[in-house]
Design a protein around this nucleic acid. Sequence first.
DNA 1: CTTGTAGATGCATGATTTTGCAGTTTTTAG
DNA 2: CTAAAAACTGCAAAATCATGCATCTACAAG
Lengths: 249, 249
Amino acid sequence: MLKAERHKYIMTKLIEDQKVVTTDLALALDLSEDTIRRDLNELDSKKLLEKVYGGAVQVKEKSANVFDIAITAEEQKKQIVTKALSLLHDDQVIIMSGGSTNLVFAKLIPADLKATIYTYSLPIAMQLSQHPNIDLIFIGGKMQKNAMVTIGMDVIQVVSKIKADICFIGASSINIKQGLTEVGYEISIVKKAMIEASDRVVSMFASNKLNTKMPHGVCDLTQLDTIVTELDPEDEKLDEYRKSGVFIL
Amino acid sequence: MLKAERHKYIMTKLIEDQKVVTTDLALALDLSEDTIRRDLNELDSKKLLEKVYGGAVQVKEKSANVFDIAITAEEQKKQIVTKALSLLHDDQVIIMSGGSTNLVFAKLIPADLKATIYTYSLPIAMQLSQHPNIDLIFIGGKMQKNAMVTIGMDVIQVVSKIKADICFIGASSINIKQGLTEVGYEISIVKKAMIEASDRVVSMFASNKLNTKMPHGVCDLTQLDTIVTELDPEDEKLDEYRKSGVFIL
DNA sequence: CTTGTAGATGCATGATTTTGCAGTTTTTAG
DNA sequence: CTAAAAACTGCAAAATCATGCATCTACAAG
């Protein structure tokens, strides 16, 4: 694993959990704590986080414009979500989770689509508020900072009352055995509720998420109806997933 | 294999995996690592990727900001809201309506303020979500798209259950006789609920809103505790308002 | 056909970076 | 205060890198 990857992992984890612990990272990444400490010191000196005794926390002020949302590998994500556009039809009730892949998806939803969309992600709501024909419902609750999504019981309560035709659910990690898994516990339970509330469950993610795992389970593969990656559906990397019965787009 | 082919292969691989490793590429392409390194350096200098120790990763891209929110007369608004910062204290429960004046206010809230803030405005929530010490609660509901706020009964229900210390309420129009008035009916009833739910009601607006009116009433002047404009509190344009008993900052 | 040249490639070498370990210091918690 | 955990420091091994140089290839001019 490259150092740059580690740093990215650490920053992602930091955003999800608001903190990282040196020993946990050393265990998760299979490296000595010394190396993790050096990483944290480096990221600290770049002002990307603040090192504290035992780990690191988020840096206080982000001087960059809050409304500039960086999307990594946007082209790849466009490629993925374009395939999923065929799943959209007029008059559907849709639930969308957060995540940058879903944000790219939101950007590409055709302007003439008439649908009702529920979301609990601020950026996705802002994006969809540009669409003339979409009834947009934001699911309120306590905000998880930096992930820009609402979480908690308020969200679960609202979601569990929705009768949706389809939900689009981001994926932190997916593998054959555990299915979808998430870094954060709170997000994982919201996603569980989304799946319960929807007739059809679609997950979109880049193939590098395949065969990885995170601490908190969301659902197993049998609960997913469709997965979408940038790969050809017949690609051998997807063989095992195809066998599990999930439809691959 | 031509160099151009290799470069294409490397870029494809990079998009697939979000990274490339020098040794892997050397093996896959049956070339020395030196050549791969030269390739990576070349692509790096063309800004097509970023070389790191052991391989290369994707360059960070910034998304086009669909989220650009134009604020007219931002300097004047800064001047207004700066006065209102003195009304903030730790441990307050605050409700904020939408509007660009309130958005400017949100930007200027000190980083060390510990408070709970309710809002139903997407831009304000995005702004505050970066704030380290604020418990932020978004009030969900149906989105009114152009204003980027939620409206309707869901919002009223949540707001009416809040016990807030102070609310900051944008103003479309204000005059002596009718007090605060709004263009939209839906917004007007949400603001009524905010006022009911708060011990103290503050309204911030530029002086050109003075002595204008809109179709839907929100409250009369006696229900406002404080108003804030860019004018000196002793300015004669405010004489009549001062007489009504409202505090002018 | 020969020859010269420019670019590409691989190898050797020394420099640089990364990483884990051992010993010491600092911080935290009781 | 004391003990344990975490952090820092110096060091050495391994991996990676930059550089110079020789070789090879392609191609054009003579």
